[in-house]
Design a protein around this nucleic acid. Structure first.
Length: 560
RNA sequence: GCCCCCAUAGCUCAGGGGAUAGAGCGUCUGCCUCCGGAGCAGAAGGCCGAAGGUUCGAAUCCUUCUGGGGGCACCA
């Protein structure tokens, strides 16, 4: 008996009650008052309120002209007779509180163990084709704390979307074209020559380090003609920097399905001589949203809610960044992705309107085909960090300080739009304060119990779920039951932090259970089916925590 | 000026219209001869920024205001 099954049966009862009430009232109205999806069972906060609660009576009271408590009584009377339901009671203003049979609730432990890594997976997004783009930092410097948050969040979003059945590609868009790249090359070349950073160029020790590495790879760099030296220095530094970024993300358990180069959008097709950007502008023009003015080419993004029209090709003939965006967007569609998700920092929120306008100008539905998630910036001790300012705190530095698990977890347990302040002193000195240890410890404990059980001769040779009657057992089972719904919700809302909060709750309930319910008999006490059944519950809990941590890209150690 | 985000315990933060608003850290009191005390039990600590509104019911939805953060380009 899971909440979905209970809701199905509750729905049948409710429609029956509604029909009877209407008949009694002589109403001819036959429109259903409530849909199946409107029946939602909640876990009451207070355990005295049972395993599951429904507010359906309060919602129907007004349209039926009935007293909510009386209506609830009528529904509860029938619901109490359902198989697997131990009790259905009316409480408060008209809640119906359900208590499940221990056997019906406990069966879940075996279900989870049998499902293993697949427990939590669901099909709520089956059939969806989603392209998720995140990080996409310019390859002109190391990843810093800001990118780190999007890396953690984006990767976890990708994982929950996949776990919910979506057909998904996660992508890193490499901004390897344009003036920032030139500036980067200029900066590295200047460093190689021992000259000061050019005006507006990139400062920072990493530029000097890159220059040194480039000189190692190309010893004759400085004797090349200036243009060539600039080009070689820029390309070499770009390769080195991009490789470093890829490695840093890999070490951070962040995997991208596609690394997409902006340059590829500008490359002319050998047959037609036309680049994807050329083609994109042509396609937008064909849709009727492009116009020429002052020698430049514009997209009428104001037709789609932007506050001003945007130049796509400057009067000097050079495409703007917006042109690349357009080509990239269309390319995603061409590759079969209907739904395009962008994860951007709050400092880029000005792009939201024009990206949405882009979808509209391309003939897509901005409300359906494009989704821009705006994340708030992470600050450290109130200081904001910028690669231009040179006071970079790199991803790799943070990993060294905190460890990958703690860092991913602390970034992943808050919603993207929540401002986050990390205190490096605190994190460095008290890394045990991080809730990740609480969760990981619970997991390690489940493994330890399993190891000890084996030694003690307690095995999963029997399963008697009706014995799982302790209060802490029904609380734990109820929470474990929720996991697939939590994963589906995290995917639907693009909020993977819900996974973290959830496994923290599971960890807490597990610790409470552990404290009162022994898997291994005390002293000379014989091994019973209760112990064996508890081992199933122990292992099921470990599995759920492990699956949850995996969605967050955090390890689940067997020992700590 | 216009736009976006935020405001909940001392601190960092959760809380999809539901019952007595939660967690971690910090403070205080208990609990290890037996499955890991990185834990558990309990205490203290809140006009959920303010005021209106919608609702049977609002921390949650709407409006206004206040206070913080971020953004406006023929830059990338």
């Amino acid at each position: 008996m899971n909440p979905d099954q209970l809701a199905d049966q509750l729905y049948a009862i409710v429609t029956g009650v509604v029909d009877r009430r209407r008949a009694a009232n002589g109403t001819t109205e036959s429109q259903p008052l409530i849909a199946r999806d409107d029946i939602r069972l909640d876990r009451p906060r207070n355990r005295d309120h049972g395993d599951w609660a429904s507010n359906v009576a309060m919602r129907l009271a007004k349209p039926l002209g009935a007293n909510p408590r009386e209506l609830a009584e009528e529904i509860a009377l029938e619901a109490a007779r359902l198989d697997g339901v131990a009790a259905a009671e009316v409480a408060g203003p008209g809640f119906i509180n359900f208590r499940l049979d221990a056997a019906a609730a406990g069966a879940l432990a075996k279900t989870i163990v049998d499902a293993g890594e697949t427990y939590g997976q669901n099909v709520t997004l089956a059939g969806a084709t989603i392209n998720l783009e995140f990080v996409s930092a310019n390859p002109t410097g190391p990843l810093h704390i800001g990118h780190t948050r999007w890396a953690a969040l984006g990767d976890s979003i990708a994982r929950v979307l996949k776990a919910s059945g979506a057909s998904l590609a996660s992508e890193y868009y490499i901004n390897d074209a344009g003036s920032q790249m030139e500036l980067f090359g200029t900066s590295v070349l200047a460093a190689a020559k021992g000259e000061p950073t050019p005006e507006g160029g990139y400062p920072g020790q990493y530029i000097a380090d890159l220059a040194t590495a480039v000189l190692e790879r190309v010893p004759g760099l400085l004797s090349l003609p200036d243009d060539e030296a600039l080009s070689v220095a820029g390309e070499q530094a770009y390769e080195l920097q991009l490789a470093e970024i890829r490695q840093a993300l890999k070490d951070f358990n962040v995997e991208f399905d596609v690394w997409f180069s902006e340059r590829s959008l500008h490359k002319p097709d050998p047959q037609t001589g036309e680049s994807l950007v050329d083609a994109a502008v042509g396609r937008l023009r064909a849709q009727g949203h492009v116009f020429d003015e002052d020698g430049a080419v514009w997209v009428r993004t104001t037709d789609f809610g932007d506050d001003k029209d945007r130049v796509i090709r400057r009067s000097n003939g050079v495409y703007t960044y917006f042109a690349s965006d357009a080509a990239y967007y269309l390319n995603k569609t061409d590759r079969g992705f209907q739904h395009k998700i962008y994860l951007l920092g709050a400092d880029h929120h000005g792009y939201v309107h024009r990206l949405r306008a882009l979808a509209g100008a391309a003939g897509d539905d901005p409300d359906r085909d494009i989704e821009v998630l705006i994340g708030q910036l992470v600050s450290i001790n109130g200081a904001k960090l910028s690669k231009r300012a040179g006071n970079i705190i790199e991803l790799t530095d943070l990993q060294t300080w905190l460890g990958t698990d703690a860092l991913r977890y602390s970034l992943g347990r808050s919603p993207a739009d929540s401002p986050l302040t990390l205190d490096p002193e605190l994190l460095r000195s008290h890394s045990n304060d991080n809730p990740v240890y609480y969760v990981q410890y619970a997991h390690a404990r489940t493994r330890s119990v399993a190891r000890n059980a084996e030694t003690a001769g307690v095995t999963r040779s029997a399963f008697a779920p009706e014995l799982l009657t302790h209060e802490s057992e029904s609380a734990l089972l109820g929470a474990l039951q929720e996991f697939p719904r939590i994963v589906a919700l995290a995917a639907e809302l693009r909020e993977p932090h819900r996974i973290a909060r959830y496994i923290e709750e599971v960890a807490g309930l597990y610790h409470k259970w552990y404290d009162t319910c022994r898997v291994i008999p005390l002293g000379d006490e014989p091994i019973s089916d209760l112990h064996r059944t508890r081992l199933w519950l122990n292992d099921a809990t470990g599995q759920v925590i492990r699956n949850g941590l995996a969605l967050l890209g955090v390890s689940a150690p067997d020992r700590m």
